[in-house]
Amino acid sequence: MTEPPVTGGTEAHTARFPTETPPAAASGHVTAGGGLPLLEDVPAWLTARITLRQRIGDHLLVVGEVESGAVAEDAPALVHHDGAFAAARRLPSQ
């Protein structure tokens, strides 16, 4: 099955995440409460408080409690799976 293309203007933002440059340094951003950088021109954002850090094998599981967030536009959800980005879409009704 072919994955749908990334849409909704997210291509430019997703191209930065696999790099060494932190996202806030790579593009325009605004400062939220507490000095947190938030990317500009993204369809949605959230901030979270870390509630758990757990080593699992050679991975680190980080769990957070969402404290704030907003949706700036109606855009498809962005999915990263198996090394690629795609836009999520609803499954057809059965």
Rank of each mutant, 00 (worst) to 15 (best):
T2D: 14
A87N: 08
F17D: 10
L38S: 10
G33F: 02
V79T: 06
A70Y: 05
E65G: 07
A12Q: 14
T2Q: 14
A84Q: 15
P37K: 13
L78I: 00
A77Y: 05
G35R: 00
A75G: 10
S93P: 07
S27K: 06
T14V: 03
E67V: 00
L52G: 05
A32L: 01
Q94F: 08
D74P: 04
T19Y: 07
E73A: 09
G28P: 07
P37T: 07
L39V: 05
S27N: 06
T31N: 15
V6I: 09
R89P: 12
E67Q: 05
G9L: 00
G64L: 08
D58Q: 03
L46M: 14
F17G: 06
L38T: 07
R16T: 06
S27R: 07
A26D: 02
A75S: 01
G64E: 11
P22Q: 06
A25H: 04
S93Q: 13
R16Y: 09
T31L: 10
G69D: 01
Q54R: 07
G28W: 12
P23H: 02
R89E: 15
G64Y: 13
A77V: 01
T14K: 05
H81N: 05
P5K: 12
G57M: 01
S93W: 12
P43W: 00
A15H: 06
